[in-house]
Design a protein around this nucleic acid. Structure first.
Length: 186
DNA sequence: AACAGAGGCAACCGCAAGACT
DNA sequence: CAGTCTTGCGGTTGCCTCTGT
């Protein structure tokens, strides 16, 4: 017998979460905090696999999620980060407080791709469509870094004026927007 | 009003990395 | 060091809602 499956396939619910399941998960994490996803379902009385619980919490139930529409500034930041990082959604999400990798990935695939195509830019390469191959990649990446620097300063300005604390859960206090882009790609 | 197709999004799956024993 | 386990990631799926006819 090999490794046990990450999810107990039998007796687990799948698909959309019910209000009751959400409530159980929220209550459990409120009481015990995050961690040990594998044992959480049993401990919380949920007929779900740990992965499913983690996903539900991270992408939907966490109290520090921003939700709602993306701003134009977020759009541009995502585009620039994607030009630097590629499909590293978790890294990109790390620089957008209150947004999740799944949300950004979905938003990219549904909105931003189209937006770039409309601009005549290939969303995969961030190069103009039909442009001859050249050293454009490098120059664009350099430009993107510069632009992100500008965005960062603008974000810092706007952040410093708004200090509203919406969540009472101190552990989920949103981190300051980290736009330091001295990224070393693998 | 009814239907079909498109779009949007939550959730699943498989895999890889890192932690643990 | 090797094998096992858990977590996290990215790609993908499929259901639900919206929009056009």
């Amino acid at each position: 017998m090999g490794r046990s499956p990450c999810c107990e396939k039998a007796h687990t619910n799948k698909g959309a979460w019910t209000k009751e399941e959400d409530d159980r998960l929220i209550a459990y994490i409120r009481a015990h905090g995050e961690g040990c996803w594998r044992s959480l379902p049993k401990a919380a009385g949920l007929l779900r696999c740990g992965k499913s619980c983690r996903l539900r919490w991270i992408n939907y139930l966490r109290p520090d999620l921003k939700r709602g529409n993306f701003t134009e500034e977020e759009d541009e930041l995502i585009i620039k980060l994607h030009s630097l990082l590629g499909n590293k959604w978790s890294l990109i999400a790390g620089r957008l407080p209150g947004r999740t990798d799944n949300e950004i990935k979905n938003y990219w695939n549904t909105h931003i791709r189209r937006k770039l195509l409309n601009r005549g830019i290939d969303p995969a390469t961030h190069r103009p469509i039909h442009a001859p191959l050249s050293d454009f990649t490098i120059t664009f990446a350099e430009r993107a870094k510069k632009d992100v620097g500008i965005l960062q300063r603008e974000e810092e300005k706007s952040n410093s004026s708004s200090s509203e604390e919406s969540s009472s859960w101190q552990q989920y206090k949103q981190p300051d927007l980290n736009l330091e882009l001295s990224i070393s790609l693998p």
